[in-house]
Simulated scan of single mutants.
Amino acid sequence: METIEEMKKPYLQLEGINKVFKLPNGGEYVALKEINLDIYKNEVVAIIGHSGCGKSTILNIVAGLQDQSSGNMILDKKEITGPGPDRGVVFQNHSLLPWLTVFQNVEMAVKKVMPDLTKKEREERVNTFLEYVNLTHAAQKYPGEISGGMKQRVGIARALSIRPKVLLMDEPFGALDSLTRANLQEHLGRIQQSLENTVIIITHDVDEAVLLSDRIIMMTNGPAATIGEIVEVNLPKPRNRLALQDNPEYIRCKEAVLAFLYQKYSKEEVE
């Protein structure tokens, strides 16, 4: 069991992360500059900013899908040097294999990461995480037979089934209609509370950021984007969107994010 002191230490550390892309003409584009961020165990962090501010680049670097140009990343006292099952990723596109059932899509990830499980253990694990996302009834259906919101829940179940230390989500609800998105946001909040995952979520949605996160990381505009400000969200969980509409803390956080984004946008437009 972890001590209080251990829980106070950063779980994921981004230290001096820079990302420079080489251009065809021989030049360079500086996408990220000096990203320094400490994330704690069981914390939900939202990263928000205008298009082109490097949000997804940060997520891809943490996931090991891209290399940083310089800087270091430490997860649970170990350096991140590439992709690994300690980080689960959920993209805006669910990326399900259409020839596999819902059950098989999740099972595939479990087989890959946990090859030593018996058939019974594997089936129990898959069923457990399908239950978390309320999809037990759809286990034998194919992706073409279920809705967009259900497909995204399968993607979440698949990522969670390998029990990653950090769940990385790149605008996971961005392609969904507003009602489905709202329902899944609250559902994700309940799952996170139950499993106590550490989560990084990339979003353009201010309400989503405030509803789900413990801290909101606001990025400056690119090029050479960096962390501009951080908003602490001091709201008890679980959170209900309707109950929060008149909550002073909810309003404060939302106004702080909007003010930052509006001021940065206006500044860039004037320049």
Rank of each mutant, 00 (worst) to 15 (best):
L160A: 05
Y142W: 10
Q68A: 15
I202V: 15
S70W: 03
V257S: 02
T81I: 14
I47S: 03
G144P: 08
N36K: 13
I230C: 07
S178Y: 13
E131Q: 15
I4W: 04
F129S: 02
F91N: 03
G84Q: 10
P223Q: 07
I251T: 08
E2T: 13
N247P: 02
A243N: 12
M7I: 12
T57V: 09
S51T: 06
P172R: 01
N127I: 15
T180I: 13
G174T: 04
V154P: 04
T136E: 13
V44S: 11
L130M: 07
V233P: 01
A209W: 02
Q92D: 00
E269N: 15
K141F: 10
I162P: 08
V44P: 03
N234W: 00
P238S: 10
Y11H: 13
P24L: 09
A224M: 05
Q140G: 14
N234M: 07
L184M: 13
L65W: 11
L179Q: 15
V113S: 08
K165C: 02
F260H: 09
A63G: 14
M219F: 11
I35K: 04
G84R: 07
V45I: 15
Q192L: 09
N197Q: 14
A256K: 13
H50V: 01
V166P: 05
R122A: 07
A159G: 06
A182D: 10
D76R: 09
S194C: 03
V110N: 02
T136I: 15
K77C: 07
V90E: 05
C253G: 14
G82L: 01
G27F: 06
I162S: 09
S56L: 02
D86P: 05
V133I: 05
A139K: 15
I58R: 01
G26W: 07
L130I: 10
E34G: 13
